[in-house]
Amino acid sequence: MKSRIIISTILVSLFLFSCGKKKYEDYNEEDFIEKQGIITKMTRTSNPLDSEWNRDIIYAYNLEEESVSYGQENNIDLMFKLGQPIVILVHKDDDKISFYARRGLINEQEWAAGFKRLIDKK
């Protein structure tokens, strides 16, 4: 009886730990397209042991559409500025799945429109 409880506990624990948020590496690279993004918010990570450079960022993408989409990356070891252009990898079949790719400007008109929206909100 005790061994059944131990085995059940181990299996449940393994299941719970394996159900975390999917990472980019969990997907097929060819399922993503690059989109222009913009940094909309930055905060220091909540872990007091992290470097002072580590940030959680919120970014906007699909800037050309009526309803802009937002994504988040946690624990990035880079400094950003509000409104900075970045490149976002967006899943072809589900545009709610997105990841930060790199800093960069791939469509200046989209970025400018997104920057204007960001400024107008303040």
Rank of each mutant, 00 (worst) to 15 (best):
K116T: 15
I5P: 00
K35M: 12
R103H: 14
E73K: 02
I76G: 08
P85D: 03
D56W: 00
T45L: 09
E30H: 09
P85M: 03
S13Y: 02
K35Y: 10
E73N: 09
D50R: 06
E73A: 04
Y100N: 06
G83K: 07
D77M: 09
E30L: 08
N107I: 05
G114V: 01
M42W: 00
E108Y: 03
L49I: 10
S69R: 11
D93K: 09
E52D: 12
K41D: 15
I6K: 13
N28I: 02
T43V: 15
P48I: 10
P48F: 01
E110N: 08
G37V: 05
N28E: 12
D31E: 13
I106Q: 14
L16M: 14
K81T: 06
F80R: 11
E66G: 14
I86A: 07
G114K: 01
R103W: 07
V68E: 11
K35A: 14
Y61P: 04
K122Q: 10
S98P: 04
D77H: 10
N75K: 10
S46P: 01
Q36S: 04
L105V: 15
Q36L: 00
P48W: 07
Y61C: 01
L11F: 07
K92A: 08
T43F: 12
I106E: 14
V12G: 01
N75W: 15
E34D: 08
I57T: 09
A101W: 09
E29H: 12
W53V: 15
L16S: 10
F80H: 14
C19E: 03
V12L: 13
Y59Q: 00
N74W: 12
M42G: 11
K116Y: 03
G71H: 02
D77E: 12
L63W: 13
Y100I: 11
R55C: 11
L118Y: 05
S3G: 15
E52K: 10
G104T: 04
Q72F: 07
E30A: 09
K92M: 02
L118A: 08
D95P: 05
F15S: 08
E30Q: 03
R102P: 15
M1K: 00
Q72A: 08
L118P: 01
R102A: 15
K122T: 14
V12P: 01
F15G: 01
I58H: 05
K81I: 05
R55D: 01
E29K: 09
K41L: 08
K116P: 03
E73M: 09
T43W: 06
N54E: 15
I38K: 05
K96C: 04
K2M: 05
K35G: 07
T40V: 14
V68H: 04
E52C: 11
W53F: 07
N62F: 06
I10F: 04
S3N: 10
L118H: 06
G83M: 14
W53K: 15
E30V: 06
I39L: 01
T40C: 15
S98F: 02
T9L: 12
L14A: 05
